[in-house]
Amino acid sequence: MLPPRILRRVVLAPLVIVVTVFMLVTLPFWLVVTAAASLRLPPPQRRGARFVWFAVAWLTLESAVLIACLWLWVAGGAKRQERHYALIGWFLTRVYGAAERIFLLTTDIEEPEPTPEEQEARLSRPVIVLSRHAGPGDSFLLIHHLLARYHRRPRIVMKAALQYDPSLDVVVNRLPNAFVPRSTDQSGVTAEIRRLAATMGDRDALVIFPEGGNFTPRRRRLAIRRLEEKGLTGEAGRARDMDHLLPPRPNGAIAAIESCPPADVIFVAHTGLDQLVTVGDVWRKLPVSAHITAKWWRVPAAEIPRTREERVRWLYDHWALIDAWITEQRGSRPEAGTQSDGAGRPASRPPARRGWRR
């Protein structure tokens, strides 16, 4: 059970700062230990020192955010949303920079180049972002780009357990977001999505992960079985045709669209670190240089279907498009184990044009 907020503030937050100071003072020791432990490993598997450097960078940035939040509270700025969005942007930009230097992270993002008229229109209404959920830190990367590249104010519904992270707990709870306990049913999550979507302004972006979790073959089989048990044979059949994604849960996306009719919808596909789901996966399989490829499709509000049935089909259509794009990017057949239930492979398309690179 999550500790009360006051306990998290007076115990967990100071503890992060104490741990940060300890790690900074003992950093040479940890680097020597990890280097010695890695001597018998081949160079691609010598990840220990990199993880130590990244952990220290993360803790240092977390401590800086907590100190800044304390200062804002003392100065009476705890309710100033713009300052907190700026603080999140500062934190994520530096975390991203650390990942670039330590893990040699690169990112390619492809999106249609807008005309000046389209660009002006895009900045004058809210957006609903529907993204696949896979790999470590995909939500952090997405929020980073929304803030840094697109100057949006993201809103997101998250698991309540994430409040164990003190800086996330403090900053996110001061902004229009929602934390939901693990026991919350789908209707409770949908209600929070409606609440956040209904109050969006022109610069806001509501981020939703319709799959509800990271992809694994087992979760895919269970999701298809649930659809069949509900009598949704059409959706189950379409889910079998997708090799890399869980079937989308439409209630949250549809609730957001209904609650904010002026919003455009952006679909986000990404691949590159999909196979790194658990901490153990990251430790064992993180490559020497990490590369993420992403593509965004934007649907203007006027082109979004009007009825629920049409919106469910439309959502599955875009999920099939994302799945085919991932197959194309990987350039190989799906992983072993994902076709055990007869899933077919989507037809490939011509190579996509490369867009913005960082």
Rank of each mutant, 00 (worst) to 15 (best):
R8M: 09
R8W: 01
R8N: 02
R9Q: 02
A13P: 06
T20V: 01
F22I: 11
L27W: 13
L31C: 05
V32P: 11
A35Q: 12
P42T: 07
P42E: 07
P44H: 14
Q45C: 12
R47P: 08
F54Y: 14
L61T: 09
C69D: 14
W71H: 06
W71E: 00
V74C: 13
A75D: 11
A75T: 14
A78Q: 15
Q81P: 01
R83M: 13
A86T: 10
W90T: 01
T93C: 06
V95I: 15
V95S: 14
V95Y: 08
Y96M: 01
A99F: 06
E100Y: 00
D108V: 10
E110Y: 01
E110M: 09
E113L: 08
P116G: 09
E117P: 08
E118S: 10
E118L: 14
Q119M: 13
A121V: 07
S124E: 13
P126T: 05
V129S: 05
L130C: 13
R132M: 06
R132E: 04
H133M: 11
A134P: 04
L141I: 01
I143Y: 01
H144F: 10
H144E: 11
L146D: 00
Y150A: 14
R152K: 15
R153G: 02
V157Y: 05
V172K: 06
R174I: 05
V180N: 06
G188A: 05
T190C: 02
E192P: 04
T199W: 10
G201A: 11
D202A: 15
A205P: 12
E211N: 12
N214T: 11
R218Y: 05
R218C: 00
R221I: 03
R221N: 04
I224P: 06
E229P: 00
L232I: 00
R240N: 01
L245E: 07
L246P: 12
A255W: 06
A256F: 05
A256W: 02
A263C: 07
V268P: 03
T271R: 07
G272C: 01
L276G: 08
L276P: 02
G280I: 11
K285W: 11
I292K: 02
T293R: 15
W296D: 07
W297C: 10
R298K: 13
V299G: 04
P300N: 09
R308T: 08
R308N: 03
W314G: 09
W314H: 12
D317Y: 06
A320L: 00
L321D: 02
I322P: 02
I322H: 02
A324R: 15
Q329L: 03
P334K: 12
G344Y: 00
P346D: 01
R354W: 01
R354C: 08
R358F: 07
